[in-house]
Design a protein around this nucleic acid. Structure first.
Length: 271
DNA sequence: CGATTATGATTAA
DNA sequence: TAATCCTAATCGC
């Protein structure tokens, strides 16, 4: 489930549960025993997300850097925490709840300098830009990064150096919603299209954080009261819908390969 | 109960 | 482009 919205939601939930508390850290699976030992008993100060990267800052100055990758999960457990499964790489326990990390692509204790090195390599994250000024600056940065690339826009949106936080679902959905053919070169988009991608990504990822899942279909279009009410099968326009009729025009959704991953698009709605 | 698949990203070829 | 890492839900038999 991890695209940018998942990570920002985790940052929010972890802040609520663990920030300001001393935590106990352990690695039931064993692979992160040394890291857990370094964090054990430390006070977590603040959790922060940038794209798909999660950073948990500690009073000691240590930073827990987590990337969930494709299959990683960070799950909340009520106290008293149940016996951990043998795949739990890291368990953090605070005063309010416990959190179990499984299958991360990356889990390491780093310094704040390391963290800055990591984020310096990432493109702007629409969920980080707040305020009119910051939004305008980030959006312009995004446009400049796109303009330098002639790869397909469908590939560019997956490139975390261009924009941080979009994954395979959102890239398909955002390009569908804006009627953009995913094969068009990134540097062929005009300013209005670039701005529209940035703004829509902000809105969609923001909704993803709120709902804690990806819903892009307009609830009014689907005849329900709110996006949260949409069932899994009705929540998306393009992703994994090859061969099915486009919800807008009825044309069969196509599947293609872009940047080594499956991509879905409506040949009629996306020119 | 085994095979398949996945909303990720890097490394090797 | 393909192989690789990690886990767990789902699906077909």
């Amino acid at each position: 489930m991890p695209e940018g919205h998942t990570i920002h939601r985790l940052a929010r939930d972890l802040n609520k549960d663990l920030a300001g508390h001393d935590v106990t850290a352990s690695s039931p699976q064993g692979r992160f025993a040394a890291g857990a030992a370094r964090l054990h008993g430390e006070k977590m100060v603040k959790v922060d997300a940038w794209g798909k990267h999660l950073f948990c800052g500690f009073a000691s100055g240590q930073v827990l850097h987590i990337h969930l990758g494709l299959i990683g999960k960070f799950r909340r457990k009520k106290l008293p925490a149940p016996e951990p499964t043998d795949t739990v790489r890291l368990r953090l326990v605070g005063d309010v709840a416990a959190w179990d990390l499984t299958g991360p692509y990356l889990c390491a204790v780093i310094t704040d300098d390391d963290r800055q090195e990591v984020t310096a390599k990432l493109g702007p994250d629409p969920l980080r830009a707040t305020g009119v000024r910051a939004v305008a600056a980030a959006r312009e940065d995004f446009g400049a990064r796109l303009a330098r690339r002639r790869v397909a826009i469908g590939a560019a949106l997956l490139d975390q150096k261009i924009i941080a936080g979009i994954g395979n679902v959102y890239r398909a959905e955002i390009l569908f919603l804006l009627g953009i053919d995913p094969r068009r070169p990134a540097n062929s988009l005009d300013e209005a299209e670039v701005n529209a991608i940035w703004d829509l990504t902000s809105v969609q990822l923001g909704q993803g954080v709120r709902l804690n899942r990806i819903v892009t279909v307009d609830p009014a279009e689907a005849g329900v009261k709110s996006a949260g009410r949409l069932k899994r099968a009705d929540a998306l326009y393009a992703y994994k819908r090859e061969g099915l009729p486009c919800r807008r025009c009825g044309t069969e959704i196509e599947i293609m390969k872009i940047a080594n991953r499956s991509m879905w698009a409506c040949p009629t709605c996306q020119k």
